[in-house]
Simulated scan of single mutants.
Amino acid sequence: MTTLGASIRYIRGICTSSVLGREVPTNLKGRKTSSQLWLHRQLSDPYVEKAKMENYRCRSAFKLLELNQKHLILSPGMTVVDCGAAPGSWSQVAVHLTNANGMKAESPKGKVFAIDRSQIYPIDGAIVLGNSDFTTKETQDKLRERLAGELVDVVLSDMAPNATGVRNMDHDNIVALAYAALQFALEVSKLDASFVAKIWDGRESKEIENDLKRFYKNVKISRPAATRTESSEKFLVAKGFKGLKY
C-alpha cells in the first residue's frame, strides 16, 4: 500500500502550472450485540430500502448522486475511474450519468473503470477490475493499459481501510488511501478534471484539503444526507484540475 508519507512527499514535490417503510429484525437469538445493532440499523435505514427499489447495490449510491447534484461532477461522455468500487453502486451511478452503457443514443458515451481489491460482479457499462488493489503499481499499470493513453475526467475514491477502532490510526489510513488516489489522478487527469475522495475527520483533514487546492481550482467539503449520523466521514470534492509542470 502507498504510505501516507510517501504520497504526501510525491504530491508536494510537484510544481504546478495554470495549464455524489421500515422493518424490525426478528430471530436475533444467538447473534452478537454488534450484529443485532447492525441489523436494526440496516432495516430502519430508508436509504437501504430506497437502494433496493432503484436497483443500486448499496445505499452509498445516494451519496454520489447528491454530490453530483450539488457539484455537477459527472456528465455524458466522461471517462471515470472509480477506486474502491465494490460492491459497485458508485460505478452504477457513474455509468448512468456518463452514458457508459450507451442507453441514451443522443448523448456521447462515456467510460467507467471500477477497481477494488475485492471481487466485483459485472456492472453493465463498466470495465471491472476486481481482486485488484488500487494502491499497487501492478493494478495502476493494468489500468493505464486499459486507458490506452486516454486522459481521465473524474477520479472517484470511496476507498476505506478496515477500521481498527483507533481513531487516529483509522484516520491516517484513510487519508493515505485518498493520497494514493490523488497521486494517480494527478498523473492521468485531463485539464479541468475532477477528483472526489472520502476521508474520516481528523488531524490530517485540513492538510489534504490544502494540498488539493494546489492542483484544483475549487475544493469543497461535502457531507451528503445519506451519510449516517454516527459517521465522521466527509467527501473532498475538487474541480478544475490545473495540470502539472514537472
Score class of each variant (00 low, 15 high):
Leu4Tyr: 15
Leu4Lys: 11
Leu4Asp: 02
Leu4Trp: 11
Gly5Cys: 00
Gly5Met: 06
Ala6Val: 09
Ser7Arg: 01
Ile8Phe: 11
Ile8Thr: 08
Tyr10Phe: 12
Gly13His: 06
Ser18Phe: 12
Ser18Glu: 12
Leu20Met: 09
Leu20Gly: 10
Glu23Asn: 05
Glu23Tyr: 07
Thr26Gly: 07
Asn27Asp: 15
Gly30Tyr: 10
Gln36Ser: 03
Gln36Cys: 09
Leu37Gln: 10
Leu37Ile: 15
Leu39Cys: 02
Arg41Trp: 05
Tyr47Asp: 00
Val48Ala: 00
Ala51Arg: 02
Lys52Gln: 08
Arg57Pro: 04
Arg59Pro: 05
Ser60Ala: 15
Ser60Thr: 10
Ala61Met: 11
Ala61His: 09
Phe62Pro: 02
Phe62Tyr: 15
Lys63Cys: 01
Leu65Arg: 01
Leu65Gly: 00
Leu65Tyr: 00
Leu65His: 00
Lys70Ala: 10
Ile73Gly: 00
Ile73Cys: 05
Ile73Trp: 01
Leu74Val: 13
Leu74Phe: 02
Ser75Met: 04
Met78Ala: 01
Thr79Gln: 04
Thr79Tyr: 12
Cys83Pro: 02
Gly84Gln: 10
Ala85Arg: 03
Ala85Ser: 15
Ala85Asp: 07
Ala86Pro: 09
Pro87Cys: 09
Ser89Gly: 06
Trp90Met: 08
Ser91Arg: 05
Gln92Ser: 05
Ala94Lys: 03
Val95Phe: 13
Val95His: 12
Asn99Glu: 08
Asn101Arg: 10
Asn101Lys: 13
Ala105Pro: 11
Glu106Leu: 05
Glu106Gln: 09
Glu106Gly: 00
Lys109Thr: 13
Lys109Gln: 15
Gly110Thr: 03
Gly110Trp: 11
Val112Lys: 07
Phe113Thr: 09
Arg117Tyr: 14
Gln119Ile: 00
Gln119Phe: 04
Pro122Val: 04
Ile123Gln: 06
Ile123Ser: 09
Ala126Ser: 07
Val128Thr: 08
Leu129Ala: 12
Asn131His: 13
Asn131Phe: 06
Ser132Cys: 13
Thr136Asn: 05
Glu138Tyr: 08
Glu138Leu: 12
Thr139Val: 14
Asp141Ala: 15
Arg144Gln: 12
Glu145Ile: 05
Glu145Pro: 00
Glu145Leu: 13
Glu145Asp: 10
Asp153Thr: 09
Leu156Ile: 15
Ser157Cys: 13
Pro161Phe: 06
Thr164Arg: 11
Arg167Lys: 13
Met169Ile: 13
His171Arg: 01
Asn173Asp: 07
Asn173Arg: 15
Ile174Leu: 04
Ala176Asp: 06
Ala176Met: 05
Leu177Phe: 14
Leu177Asn: 08
Leu177Tyr: 14
Ala178Tyr: 09
Ala178Phe: 13
Phe184Met: 11
Phe184Leu: 14
Ala185Asp: 05
Ala185Ile: 08
Leu186Gln: 05
Ser189Leu: 15
Leu191Tyr: 14
Asp192Cys: 00
Ala193Phe: 12
Ala197Gly: 08
Ala197Cys: 09
Lys198Gly: 07
Trp200Lys: 03
Asp201Ser: 12
Ser205Ala: 14
Ser205Leu: 07
Glu207Arg: 14
Leu212Ser: 08
Lys213Tyr: 01
Phe215Ala: 02
Asn218Phe: 13
Pro224Met: 07
Pro224Tyr: 08
Ala226Leu: 00
Ala226Phe: 02
Thr227Lys: 06
Lys234Cys: 09
Lys234His: 14
Phe235Gly: 01
Phe235Glu: 00
Phe235Met: 06
Leu236Met: 10
Val237Met: 03
Ala238Gly: 02
Gly240Gln: 11
Phe241Gln: 06
Lys245Arg: 14
